[in-house]
Design a protein around this nucleic acid. Sequence first.
DNA 1: CAAATAGTGTCTTTTAGACACTATTCG
DNA 2: CGAATAGTGTCTAAAAGACACTATTTG
Lengths: 232, 232
Amino acid sequence: MAFEWQRANPPRRTYRDAAGRSLADYPRPSVAVDTAVLTVDEGVLCVVLVWPAHGDDPSAGGQHRLPGTFLHEGERLADAVLRSLRDKAGVTGLDPRQLHVFDDPDRDDRGRVLSVAHVVTVPARELAIDATRAVLAPVGDAPALAYRHDEIVDLAVAAVRDEYAASPDPRHLLDAPFTIRDLQDLHESVAGEPIPRDAFRRAMEARLVDTGTSRRGVVGKPARLFTHGRPS
Amino acid sequence: MAFEWQRANPPRRTYRDAAGRSLADYPRPSVAVDTAVLTVDEGVLCVVLVWPAHGDDPSAGGQHRLPGTFLHEGERLADAVLRSLRDKAGVTGLDPRQLHVFDDPDRDDRGRVLSVAHVVTVPARELAIDATRAVLAPVGDAPALAYRHDEIVDLAVAAVRDEYAASPDPRHLLDAPFTIRDLQDLHESVAGEPIPRDAFRRAMEARLVDTGTSRRGVVGKPARLFTHGRPS
DNA sequence: CAAATAGTGTCTTTTAGACACTATTCG
DNA sequence: CGAATAGTGTCTAAAAGACACTATTTG
């Protein structure tokens, strides 16, 4: 069962390094992916945490952790991320972004495991969390996590905040069409702080596509509706 | 010989996943590190390329590549990077930064290999390249590389340029003490384009430590000598 | 002194922010 | 009309760049 990759894709020749060992002779670490799933729920940037309540994963010490899985044979890292999320959050159509490889030898007592941290973002509307297995926690107020997953959350939040500081809704958390106010509310939720109204409008308006229509039916002057512009 | 990690660090229990497989049952990829070693040589940002001339590494197709190695048992990624560079460039004391994991299944025909790309920087003075095994190529004028290593060089250059745009000589390519002119020359070499003199001085001077001494012996008004400030 | 390089002062342009004012809807 | 929200115009402050001027050295 083990080492199927080697048998499935045999080297065409046996190459030997300076020590005379072939590629196959090197012991290999297990490779896992762990993913910070971020969303904006009711104006707060949140992360999906799973609760190891099934008796598995005892080395987590009863703490929450991020969803993750071991990389399977022939599988891409991004596909492993999507596979691990399909089960736990019923999410599809994401674009996982790599953050960092955690290679601490003592990080996991089940043996040497390299963990490739990822971040994905999902509109809260599309999240289907099984409450018996996962919870949604505000990123600023999350419990302590197993396997140093707190660091992954920090990296994920910083990465997403950088992206949102640079362009309008780069991860399409908002459904088009939307008003500039919708967009500003989203950006403030991601940033975790208020953004000046005028500067935000000036910076973003030129980078959006005006649909020519407006949103009616609420109090106040109708707001123009926009769609995402081309990523620049 | 193979799978020593598993024997050396046996799991304390056998944990089983949903499919009933233990951690040890999953086939594991080989993990390699590949490193873009950047330096500024005579005013030009350059990268160290190795030439696979020893009959090994035939899948590189006779092209240059970046120095790299397979991760050894129990070894940290950063240590593998340093080990691979000790041989080929006689370099020590570096601080490798991770860039990205390349996981293309067809990237290497020797089997499934995950490559963790890194970047390091080293003052040209400290580089001791064995000319029979390696060359120094300007980053803008490098030959085509094997294993899509061109992409690693691009990532490395972008990462280092971002760092240099944000603070004075963050990677300590310059020996202290140095003049602001020395610093500007370095930053222009990294950026690959000229930088306005006044703006550069204003931005950097406040973040350096004035030694109170000046450089004498050259034509012109003596320039004050600075050392790196605290990273901020 | 002439050439060369270091460093300063000041003006302009650009940008971010503050803030007030106008515009258009609902109830 | 009044409340509420959208959108515009303008002033100010801060920063970036342009550029000229002064300062101090070598030869």
